[in-house]
């Protein structure tokens, strides 16, 4: 981990954002296992460095689209933990008023075009947002997060082709977490995903996705390229999914194993949160009292958010009709 060039406050803010994502995800996993959530949640644990390292460069006018594993991107882009947790609790105070839930958290006011239940579904949406940004000449960028599984969707090739041709301000961030749902990524992926950019003349880079500052560095370059009208970039962030595909899987897999526990244990040794915390401690950016205080703040945000969500009302039945169309009669 090369710790140069990033101001200390920003480093601590990134660590805190990673910690927030981790604690929210841990809490949601606990809630599912305790039966407090019906919906199975797809947890971002182990991949926090990617969302945080990229989104640190973005503002509210920039757009992101996320995946079914989208809570982390939502928080990394500045979405409110309270409205996220309320949404996953299916409450009216949720960011989507309980209509979308865990796989669809979106906050358009923050440039979060949403998590998406369709693998690869966000890629084309962000290409459209990037087209809008390019026509507005606003300097805004669109970032599509997707997994190694989505790299098998044809829309990635379509987007590489078009965004290269039109030099759209788009960054494609593939989080290669080595698991395409329940299949090892290498069994369903030919070649290297990052190299798919090459024939289209699109800039691409592979990065250690568990090293937040490495991600931060390549994202800075890609986003700068996009903002300055020099076209798209494909980033392949090599990471690992420390949780299952979905927390509900132990139920429907009925004991069937798809990866050995030793593999997960081994990969946990490169937990991105631990790596960054240790690195910041070693450089003197993070002393024990700051860490304790950071943990206390994050724990409080999570517990207050959960408390608020538990107390919030269920969505009213009328919403079913209210949200299909907007001002239907022109």
């Amino acid at each position: 981990m090369n710790l140069e060039g990033i101001p200390e406050q920003r480093r601590l803010a990134m660590l805190e954002r990673m910690l927030l994502i981790r604690r929210v995800e841990e809490r949601l996993g606990d809630d599912f296992r305790a039966g407090r959530l019906i919906a199975g949640v797809h947890l971002y644990i182990g991949q926090e460095a990617v969302g945080v390292g990229v989104c640190d460069h973005l503002n509210d006018r920039d757009w992101i689209a996320s995946t079914h594993r989208g809570h982390g991107h939502f928080l990394a882009k500045g979405g409110s933990p309270e409205s996220l947790i309320a949404e996953i609790y299916a409450k009216q105070t949720g960011v989507c008023k309980g209509m979308g839930g865990t796989m669809h958290v979106a906050d358009f006011s923050k440039g979060i075009m949403g998590a998406n239940g369709i693998v690869g579904g966000g890629i084309s949406l962000i290409a459209g947002a990037a087209l809008a940004a390019s026509m507005d000449q606003s300097g805004a960028v669109g970032v599509a997060f997707f997994g190694d599984g989505a790299a098998a969707q044809g829309v990635l090739s379509e987007a590489l082709n078009l965004t290269a041709l039109w030099k759209l301000p788009m960054v494609m961030v593939c989080e290669n977490n080595e698991w395409s749902e329940f299949s090892p990524a290498h069994t369903v992926t030919a070649g290297r995903i990052s190299e798919r950019a090459t024939p289209y003349g699109v800039a691409s880079v592979e990065v250690d996705g568990n090293d937040v500052e490495a991600v931060w560095g390549v994202a800075r370059e890609a986003i700068e390229r996009a903002r300055s009208g020099r076209g798209p970039t494909l980033i392949e962030a090599m990471t690992y999914r420390l949780c299952g595909h979905v927390e509900a899987e132990s139920g429907f897999l009925a004991g069937a194993k798809y990866r050995p526990d030793e593999e997960v244990a081994r990969r946990r040794e490169r937990d991105p949160l631990d790596l960054y915390r240790n690195a910041l401690r070693d450089t003197g950016n993070l002393d024990e009292s700051k860490w304790v205080e950071m943990q206390r703040r994050v724990a409080e945000v999570v517990s207050e958010s959960v408390k608020a969500a538990e107390a919030a009302p269920d969505p009213p039945l009328s919403q079913i009709q209210d949200y299909m169309f907007h001002n239907q009669m022109p």
């Binding site: 579904g121 290409a127 990037a130 507005d136």
Partner: peptide
């Protein structure tokens, strides 16, 4: 003029509409 990429075309349409256009 778009490439013959309907999957991208329809998604871009939605993305551009969300981002303020009337495609």
């Amino acid at each position: 003029n778009m490439p013959i990429s309907e999957t991208l075309l329809t998604g871009m349409t939605v993305g551009a509409a969300i981002a303020g256009y009337r495609p």
